[in-house]
Structures are given as C-alpha cells and as structure tokens.
Design a protein around this nucleic acid. Sequence first.
DNA 1: ATGGCAGGAAGCTCCTGA
Length: 261
Amino acid sequence: MKSALKLATWNVNSLKVRLEQLLDWIGSGAPEVICLQETKLDDPKFPVEDIQDAGYQVVFSGQKTYNGVAIASRVAGADIVRGIPGFADEQKRVIAATIGTLRVINVYVPNGQSVNSDKYRYKLDWLSALSGWLGQQLKQYAEVAVLGDFNIAPEPRDVHDPKAWEGQVLFSQPERAAFKAMIDLGLVDSFRLFDQPEKAFTWWDYRLNAFPRGMGLRIDHILLSSALAQRCRGVSIIKDMRALDRPSDHAPVVADIADAV
DNA sequence: ATGGCAGGAAGCTCCTGA
C-alpha cells in the first residue's frame, strides 16, 4: 500500500545559512519531495552528506553567489535534467527529476529587477522558453508538478497592496500573462483549488518590518497537471518558517497528494 | 523619491534580491 505524498517548494536564500532549518524540517516530518531555490552554492560545496544523513537523496545544479536549485527527496530521482533544454543560460535555475511516477520540475524564475531593465526582458524570454519545454513535458508525462519561486504574483489577491504594485515587476501584466500561459498548457495553480486565508503570501521583504505588517506577495507556486490536481488534498504555506530566527524571506509551500486510486 | 534588510564576495563597499 502506498502512502500519501507531500511536495514542497522553498526558496532558502542561501542553503549554507538555512541548512540547519532544512535539516530540522526533514527531522520533523517534512514533505517527501522538497524543491529548493537560491542555494547559492557551487556544486562541490553542496551539503550532500548532511542531507543524505538525514535520510534524503538530493540532486542539484548550483553556482557561486547567485541562483542554484536542488531537489531533495526520500526516494532518489531519475532522468535528471538541468536547465531548460535548448535554452542557453549560464544561470542555474532549473532542475527536473522523475520520482516514482511523478515528473518534478523545480524552477527559479528570474526576478526581473524592474520592468525597464534588461533583466526583465531576460525574465520574459526565459518564461517563454520554460513554457515551451513544459508543453513538451506535459505530453511526455501525465503526472507533472512544477514547483518553485516564479517571481510572479498571479492575481490582485496575491499582493498586499495591488494598487501600489500594479505595473511593477513581479505583478506586471506581461509577467501575469506568462504565468497564465503556463496554466493554459494544462496546469493548475494548486493553492487556489482550496479555500485559503486572506492575505496568504509566500514572500515578505526583509525590510520595513514587512512580515509582521503582512506586506507580502504570493510568488512561490506549485502547478499540477490535471492527473495530480485531481489527487491534491490540500495546499498550505508554512508561514511559521518565515518567523524563525534568521529566516529566509520566503516561506515554503506544501501540496498534499493522495494515492492513485 | 529613497531607503529599509540580508547574503555573498571581497575587503572596509558593492551587487542582487523581490
């Protein structure tokens, strides 16, 4: 008999700094699959042994200082893909693995900096390339989960002050259109399958005391193909982890997936 | 209009993040 499966995404903002928090989480009933972003570690410095000693397997694609992604899982992943196939990119932002029957795609979407910047153009080009590849993956696999830091708030209710943020990076129309394009491939924003609290966010700026003041955005997402969405029993934000000492500025998001019938 | 905070690399300051 199989048991239910939990999938998580967490932008750690430096795995070196957040390693103890990750190990504590793993040691207290963490999800079976955890996608990490902004590890900020070159591959030779990745803490493989610490994570293995805690009972998880891990695959990763990293670089010094910026970016870096990893998938930690109880069961080892297979068919690992690093980066978006066919899209040349120095930045380590994507890693995918097949875990059991699940295709898990972990993404760290570019931030975009500001809507008039070269980085914003790169973000939109990057999202276009991602969508193309996701379309292929959805044809190849029935059970696809795309998890990560999308750096896009899809709707006004995902933004603490939508008027102030309208047109700004993370909430501009082209970014939201790029998000919708991924949904239109046949993916579901799993968080919105369920009733959720008001002001449900996943990121709060370190500055201005934003977290206690509730000034956040929902930019970390778990998108599921219909086969998985049908089996999704709940999605929640682990807000407590944003309240730890020396927290990441992102809280994890967890989706609970029931067994196949 | 700007800065606020945090992390990293470098090095006593800057870049980036979101």
